[in-house]
Design a protein around this nucleic acid. Sequence first.
DNA 1: CTGTTAGCGCGTTCAT
DNA 2: ATGAACGCGCTAACAG
Lengths: 337, 337
Amino acid sequence: MGVTIKDIAKLANVSHTTVSRALNNSPLIKENTKRKIIEIANQLNYSPDVHARSLVLQKSYTIGLFLTRLSNGTSSSFLAETIKGVNSVIDENYNLYVRGIQDFQDFSAITRKRFDGIILMSQSDIDNAFIYHVLEKEIPLVVLNRQVEERSIVNVLSNDQEGVYEAINLFIENGHRNIALIEGTSHFRSSQERKEGYIKALIDFKLPILQEYMVKGNYDMESGYKAMKKLLALENPPTAVFCSNDDMAIGAMKAVNDAGLFVGADFSIIGFDDIGFSEYTSPALTTVKRPIEKISMVGAQKLLQLMDDVIEENEPIYLTTNLVKRQSVVDLNKKNS
Amino acid sequence: MGVTIKDIAKLANVSHTTVSRALNNSPLIKENTKRKIIEIANQLNYSPDVHARSLVLQKSYTIGLFLTRLSNGTSSSFLAETIKGVNSVIDENYNLYVRGIQDFQDFSAITRKRFDGIILMSQSDIDNAFIYHVLEKEIPLVVLNRQVEERSIVNVLSNDQEGVYEAINLFIENGHRNIALIEGTSHFRSSQERKEGYIKALIDFKLPILQEYMVKGNYDMESGYKAMKKLLALENPPTAVFCSNDDMAIGAMKAVNDAGLFVGADFSIIGFDDIGFSEYTSPALTTVKRPIEKISMVGAQKLLQLMDDVIEENEPIYLTTNLVKRQSVVDLNKKNS
DNA sequence: CTGTTAGCGCGTTCAT
DNA sequence: ATGAACGCGCTAACAG
């Protein structure tokens, strides 16, 4: 069934070693025989047995892409962009093994033999245990999206705090003073980062920090909807709400609409991520663009380097967010004048 | 670095053969020694070398999940649901290799050795070449989402035509007569299926089929937006539009809004897929739910069976779509009365 | 430049 | 019930 180098060797009247070398383009082989061997290989439609090669080379040609979870709190676009980003960088000879960490009972199957390298799209502190395991096994590791204490780890992420700060700043420029926050999943690091950006901005602009203006969500649309309902029911409701991701912003917009108000006219919302849909909501959603696909690409590139040379500079790499202004923020200055 | 069965053998004062058998729970080994060996293995944190095992067992523990493309025409939710569905069925010992077919120059790397089985989420006829290759290599194959001629292939899909028919039916029940269609990517089979459902319904209800009411799109939001603009600019614009997927429906809704009209009041839209967002558009989008995650799960299960027993019944498996009625369809009967 | 030999880690006859 | 020897397909020393 499978053609092996031995088969080729027979036909070419050489040893299987010569075939191996020829196919690997070794300079030790005469151009002539090399050509002959390659010819035969093509004719026989030969393709090497990856497992035999892996076994002797101690290399698996497999990269593990792990997310904290695959469902519940991981939006589709987040997952898709991550995979696309990584896939666009690593070549087809590599297997890309995609899993959620939560799927694992124990990590005994995560070995150096099995993975040449691991990319962790980390959303929460709860995968620290995973990180330690990988570190202990000395598998090259890149952690994306969440700052990690260990200096030895390559870390690629976006500066969420700054992004949120800009968003709040935009609200303030537009005359808003009652600015609320819908938070992400509580133990996700990103939720905390964004909350801190919110609080920092309020402090800098000397605005009061109100408990009732900080409502918990869990990054899905429904939670955004519910959170907004709560805010709207307040005695002194906000005029503007920052949502910790776009999914929740879309839920929130729905709640505003259901209350008979119009986003962009009566009420202001800013989201986070800039998923594809945010351009097509009505009105189009102003949001903080987070470069997930870019982060994944850079992360994958870093991992490839790490697998080769062992790079030293382990400074976290920050990719900047940027504020995409669309139509979901009301300018109170104009409105009142 | 890596613990092997030989290491365990030494410590247990047995041969590596015995260790192998013990770890594979062979009945040939005394319970006593078996326990001892397992004990040592745990202590040493042993985990088998997958490549060595693959080499000797001729089994790769890898399942290939291929999509026609990963970007351009493949929506995020589609990709994400597919992966989630497959992942939920296959256990963690399996690698899941995810790729777009378009990434491949040639298929020589797609071998029986490398993949125990392949799931193809097929979106277009253009991957027929891929299918033939896989078939020729005798790799167990399940094709999802698109009907395939070969009887020998396990085929899991949804009955799109019927789903669309139901949607058009709903329009008609609500008094609509000028019903347009926004089509999906032109060479995708799903686009044709849905178009056929549309035409079939029009014929059955004795409505005229107008060229100008069938506008091409490519499954992304922007194309839906543009297509709707065209329809709105018609001399005799439709009152209702079926969009071949939800992404385009969302684009179309945006176009309606931009024209100063209100979906659900002045204009009717139905989408296809029921992606997460469609519940949160304003108004909530009526749509034909297609069970992508379910299809993927069933497909994965079938593949596992196929890899074991070689199942015979190769009838295509149809999973039913169902119409999710929300608020994007106007009832003309009520309105006019 | 090419061939001989060995070995990667594992499972599997064939002995005993 | 256990072990010795072999082979999966490949690469890498070591000769020549």
